[in-house]
Computed example of a mutant assay.
Amino acid sequence: MQAATTAEEPTRRDFLYIATAAVGAVGAAAVVWPLVAQMNPDASTLAAGTLEVDLSGVAVGQILTVKWRGKPIFVSHRTPAAIKAAEDVPLNQLKDPATDQSRVQKPEWLVVIGICTHLGCVPLGNQGPYNGFFCPCHGSVYDTSGRIRQGPAPANLVVPPYKFASATKIVIG
């Protein structure tokens, strides 16, 4: 004897179940979407998170100080001698080893947060024995790549997130 195999035809009730579930899913998404969207940052907050800096007026050897997220940012247009001095430092002489190439995107421009990593003071530019940055409060000395060379600071000056928007503009943040 052969078993009969028949597939049940979908009924109107099956269609109503599927249609109800689909409408419920769309309705739930319509309710959840605004709740999730309101968690995104405000447009003014996003605008404050980035800063565009024009580098065209910064002479070689000059350090431009701008403010980003309430912090001073040093944008240093380094001389060829400063670049060579930063690149020639053996890593074993550094308290917080980092190559110059890992700290800059273009050798002639150094961008660092201008806050001493010791106690949060603001260092002076083109100062100290390495002609980089010097924090007069406690004597921390940074080289032309913003790396700690002497003093109590435990780490290098922090490099903020930035990118070159053009040959003469950077966007920080």
Rank of each mutant, 00 (worst) to 15 (best):
Q38A: 11
V53L: 09
L110R: 06
K67M: 09
A59E: 07
V53Q: 09
A43E: 07
N40G: 09
Q101M: 10
R103Y: 04
N40C: 00
M39I: 08
E108K: 15
I83L: 07
E87I: 06
Q101D: 12
E87S: 13
K84N: 10
D42N: 10
P72D: 05
P80M: 03
M39T: 15
A86P: 01
G61V: 09
L46Q: 10
V66H: 01
T99E: 11
M39F: 15
D100P: 06
Q105P: 00
I63R: 10
A59C: 10
A48I: 05
D54L: 06
S56G: 08
W109T: 04
T65I: 10
V75E: 03
I63N: 07
V75N: 02
K71Y: 06
D54N: 15
K95F: 07
K84C: 01
L64A: 08
W109C: 02
S44Y: 02
L55M: 13
V75L: 15
L110K: 00
I83T: 12
V58L: 12
S56F: 05
T79W: 04
L64S: 07
V104M: 09
V104F: 09
K84R: 10
Q62F: 06
R69K: 15
E87F: 03
K71A: 08
G70K: 12
L46H: 07
D100A: 13
I83M: 10
Q105A: 10
D96G: 09
D96P: 04
P80T: 07
G70N: 11
V60F: 08
L110C: 05
P90G: 00
A47Y: 00
E52I: 15
P80N: 08
G57I: 06
A47G: 05
I63K: 05
D88Y: 05
R103K: 11
L91N: 04
K84S: 12
A47M: 05
T65Y: 00
T50K: 14
K106H: 13
P41H: 10
G61E: 04
E108I: 04
D96H: 08
V104Y: 04
D88N: 14
P97Q: 11
W68D: 06
I73M: 01
A43M: 00
L46P: 03
G61D: 03
L64Q: 12
E108D: 15
G61S: 09
V66S: 03
L94D: 02
A98P: 03
G70H: 07
I73E: 01
H77S: 00
A86K: 01
S56Y: 08
H77R: 14
L46Y: 04
W109S: 02
P41Q: 11
G61H: 03
S44T: 13
F74N: 00
R78W: 02
S76V: 13
S44G: 05
A81N: 12
K71H: 09
N40P: 00
A81K: 15
R103A: 01
V89K: 00
D96L: 09
K106R: 15
P41E: 06
T45M: 11
P80D: 05
S102A: 15
Q93W: 14
L64E: 12
K95V: 14
K67Y: 07
L91D: 02
D96A: 11
T50D: 12
T45Q: 12
A86F: 01
T99P: 07
P90C: 00
P107S: 08
P97S: 10
L46R: 15
D88G: 12
I73T: 01
R103I: 02
N92P: 02
S102C: 08
R78P: 01
E108H: 13
L51S: 08
T45V: 14
P107Q: 02
